[in-house]
C-alpha cells in the first residue's frame, strides 16, 4: 500500500484513503460547445500513458476530499511530488534536488 502525501492535509496518508482520477493538466475547453471533433477527441479520449514520469490526478476521497495532482514514475511507482489542483506542473529537477 502506497503512502501518498496530500498537499492539503500536509502529510502522508495511506493509499486506501485515495482514489486515482486519471491524467492531470487536461483543461476542459471553456468554449467546449464550439470545438471541432478532432479537438474533442484530443481532449476527451487521447491520453499519454507514458513509461516513466506521469502527471496524474488523485482525490483524497476518504480524507479531506480534495482533488490534487501528482508526478509519479510509472516504472518505480514512486511519487516524485504532489501539489494542489490548479497549480502549474512543478519543476521536477528542482524537486528531486530538494529530496536528495
Amino acid at each position: 500500500m502506497l503512502l501518498i502525501r496530500c498537499p492539503y492535509c500536509e502529510e502522508e496518508r495511506p493509499e486506501l484513503e485515495f482514489r486515482g482520477a486519471g491524467e492531470a493538466h487536461i483543461a476542459r475547453p471553456t468554449n467546449i460547445a464550439e470545438i471541432s471533433d478532432e479537438e474533442f477527441e484530443a481532449f476527451f479520449f487521447l491520453r499519454d500513458n507514458p513509461r516513466g514520469v506521469t502527471f496524474e490526478r488523485w482525490r483524497h476521497i476518504h480524507g479531506c476530499g480534495r482533488f490534487f495532482n501528482a508526478a509519479r514514475d510509472t516504472v518505480s511507482d514512486k511519487f516524485i511530488t504532489t501539489y494542489k489542483a490548479g497549480e502549474p506542473k512543478p519543476d521536477l529537477d528542482a524537486v528531486r534536488g530538494e529530496k536528495a
Binding site: 482514489r19 480534495r66 482533488f67
Partner: peptide, 13 residues
C-alpha cells in the same frame, strides 16, 4: 457526488 466534486473542484473552482 464524486463526479460533481470533480467538476466543481477542478473545472469550475
Amino acid at each position: 457526488l464524486h463526479h460533481m466534486e470533480d467538476y466543481l473542484q477542478t473545472e469550475f473552482p
